[in-house]
């Protein structure tokens, strides 16, 4: 046996002992670190984002329409100028898509008062305005509803909600005790036997704001059209917007 053999045996022994002495997990430390302004800003990352940010901001600030006045969802008891604009825009824009898909027309719109997330300020309307009013990614859907269901549950809901939920196509009059005394769709009395096409958003269709009456109906048409995009398309078409509080949803004292 010479030294080469010994060395070989030695190394083999070492390797063997390494295998034997396998690493064991002895300790775990865990914590969650807040990312805030005490940290340095990585300049390479910041420089990379900059052109994207500028493009987005420029685009968001591009003027697409003009508002004659300032409109808030708090101005008005059962219907508001901004809510009427919102629902009318949805009716007009969803109908274009829906008609192309099905050949039918949207008869009415019901969305929720809480879904208007910002005011429209007097002056220029920009893309950002649409993002502020509708920051969520909800999409429009159309539900085929029987006149009877509209009469029994949708109208009943609206009568008791005591909120200016935006509507379009539908007209509703309440007495002082919040009972519906007249309701019409497209200026015709509601026919309980007829099927109406009601546009709303997917959040409400899924029972948001306790609007549980949408999902009980047979036909759902998914438009793959975001509420915000409908609003943007509407603004792009109108040079000026001048919505008003009207008689679509009122209470007679």
């Amino acid at each position: 046996m010479n030294y080469k053999h010994l060395l070989f045996i030695g190394i083999a022994l070492l390797i063997y002992s390494c295998k034997q002495e396998s690493l064991q997990l002895i300790k775990i430390e865990g914590k969650n670190i807040n990312v805030n302004d005490s940290l340095q800003t990585d300049s390479e990352i910041e420089d990379f984002i900059k052109p994207y940010r500028e493009h987005v901001n420029n685009n968001l600030d591009s003027v697409i329409s003009f508002a004659v006045d300032t409109y808030s969802k708090r101005d008005g008891e059962f219907n508001t100028a901004i809510g009427n604009l919102f629902a009318d825009a949805i009716l007009e824009e969803s109908n274009t898509v829906f008609n192309k898909q099905t050949g039918h027309n949207v008869d009415m719109v019901l969305v929720n008062h809480g879904g208007i997330r910002a005011i429209i300020s007097k002056g220029n309307i920009t893309t950002r305005t649409a993002y502020e009013i509708m920051p969520f990614e909800n999409s429009l859907v159309v539900v085929a509803m029987q006149g009877k269901t509209i009469q029994d549950s949708l109208i009943r809901y609206l009568s008791r909600a005591k909120r200016a939920h935006p509507i379009s196509g539908l007209k509703l009059k309440l007495d002082k005790d919040y009972n519906a005394i007249s309701a019409s769709i497209k200026n015709q009395p509601i026919d309980t036997e007829k099927t109406y096409y009601v546009a709303t958003n997917d959040y409400l269709y899924n029972g948001g704001d306790r609007m549980t009456f949408f999902q009980t109906n047979d036909s759902l048409y998914v438009l793959n059209y975001k509420v915000r995009n409908a609003l943007l398309d509407y603004f792009l078409k109108k040079d000026t917007i001048n919505p008003v509080i009207d008689d679509r949803f009122i209470q007679i004292n």
Partner: peptide, 27 residues
């Protein structure tokens, strides 16, 4: 929204005495 970053450190050791004590967790 990138408000926090999670950080978990795992320590490995071949020391039999240390390993025999099991894994300690500090959170």
């Amino acid at each position: 929204y990138g408000i926090n970053l999670g950080k978990i450190d795992f320590y490995f050791d071949a020391d039999k005495n240390k390993a025999a004590k099991g894994t300690s967790i500090l959170v």
